[in-house]
Amino acid sequence: MLTFLFNKIFYGILVLLGVVVIVFFLFQGFGDPARLVLGQTGDSATIQHVRKELGLDKPKWQQLAMYLNDVSPIGIHSEEDIKTKQIKGIFMGKETKVGIKVPYLRRSYQTKRPVIDLLFEALPGTVVLALSAMLFATIVGVSLGVLSAVKHGTWLDTSAVFTSVLGISAPSFFIGIVIAYIFGFLLNEYTGLFMTGSLYEYHPIHGRQLQLKNLVLPAVTLGIRPLAIIVQLTRSSMLDVLSKDYIRTAYAKGLSKRDVIVKHALPNALNPVVTAITGWFAELLAGAFFIEYIFNWKGIGKITVDALENLDFPVVMGSVLFTATFFVVINILADILYGWIDPRARVV
């Protein structure tokens, strides 16, 4: 088990290393960062000073090494660097210090704030949105999948399959625009929902208030695609399980149809569904980008799209690395969870 975890973590680190290298070189040549920091008013002397401060006067390979050192949880920094960049961690040494630290994702060109602070401020909105979408997709998807399998060959089965195919085929950003327009604009008088809004909004009198109703439309929109996948997986897995000998034995013992389905068939049919759910949750964190932008939902996706518009590369790079880390962690947890649910998949 320890060897399995070590291998997973090792490959996860390689994936993150690849993401950092690709993202670093991807944003080379998209404008001078020193000019983006200073705007159009900086003189040449000031620009050269900023370029030196950001390490832009060094060769590309040194810039990459410096960025890897910054974002790594284990790094080498001078005492001046630690104070200037406000790097948090445990360091040993005198002038040059080695230590375990919070990854330094640098500062936003626009707000001058640490990128990690911006991401952690936006993270709760994205996590709440992704969890709500996954909860909606899981409950409705498993229910429809079981119903479709039990009513195999009927109009309920055909309708569930047809609807799931539509959900898989339709692009999320298009569905988002349609749902926002219909339920947040045309039917606003009946639904009480709005086209845009965040989890918390400021009222001129009452201050910061929780607005759960703003979560409904983006969560449903984000959950449509995983819902469609879960319906298909649950239906297929249930049909396979319902044809097994032990199910016929359970019926022969006089168990009710409900007990057979709930206690015997469903638990054995959920293995591929659990894998899909954990995998889709990681994807929802990334897929929320456009949904957050459409519904003006304050989350990592919204600030990333805004940063792209403003060429705020540290925020974009930090966001991509942040999301990739979530992918790696959730995939490792999914493998552990899958082994816990199905003993046959455990690694001893």
Rank of each mutant, 00 (worst) to 15 (best):
I261Q: 08
I330E: 03
L156H: 06
E80V: 13
L222P: 09
L199W: 06
V128K: 01
T196F: 15
Y202K: 09
F4W: 11
A180H: 08
I74C: 08
V146M: 13
V178C: 08
M134C: 06
P218C: 07
Y200N: 06
I22S: 10
I168C: 03
L215H: 02
R51V: 11
V273Q: 06
A137R: 03
Q211Y: 14
E309R: 08
P343D: 06
L38P: 12
Y190M: 06
H49K: 14
F295D: 00
Y109R: 02
L215R: 00
Y181A: 09
I116D: 06
R107V: 13
V142K: 05
A219T: 04
I139F: 14
G299Y: 03
K213T: 12
A250I: 04
A288W: 01
A252Y: 00
P124N: 03
V115K: 04
V348Y: 11
N188F: 11
S169I: 09
L119W: 04
S172N: 06
F30C: 02
H77Q: 12
K8Y: 10
V260N: 11
G207Y: 11
T111I: 03
L199H: 05
G223D: 03
K94F: 15
A324G: 15
Q86T: 08
L156T: 04
V128S: 02
L123C: 01
F327R: 07
I90Y: 12
I247G: 08
V146H: 01
S256D: 05
Q211V: 15
I205D: 06
N268K: 11
S143P: 07
V347A: 13
L26N: 01
T154E: 13
L311P: 06
G184L: 05
T196N: 10
A276P: 06
T158Q: 14
L147Y: 07
L118F: 06
R35M: 14
L36D: 04
H152R: 15
P267W: 10
A286I: 12
H264W: 09
L285F: 13
L333M: 11
F295P: 07
E309F: 14
G167W: 04
F183K: 04
A122S: 08
I177Y: 14
V220M: 07
D117F: 07
L199C: 05
Y338P: 00
F120D: 01
L215P: 02
L186K: 15
A170P: 03
V128A: 12
V165N: 10
W297K: 01
W61R: 08
D157M: 03
T304Q: 03
G176Y: 01
L5C: 10
H206P: 00
S159C: 13
D117W: 12
V347H: 13
L321Q: 11
A34D: 05
V20Q: 07
G184F: 07
A265H: 10
S319N: 06
I336G: 04
E283Q: 14
E189G: 05
A334C: 13
S44R: 13
A228Q: 03
G223E: 03
L308S: 00
K263S: 12
G279I: 13
L266T: 01
Y202P: 00
N7F: 15
F313P: 01
Y293R: 11
F194D: 09
G192W: 04
L199D: 00
V20H: 04
I168H: 08
A133C: 10
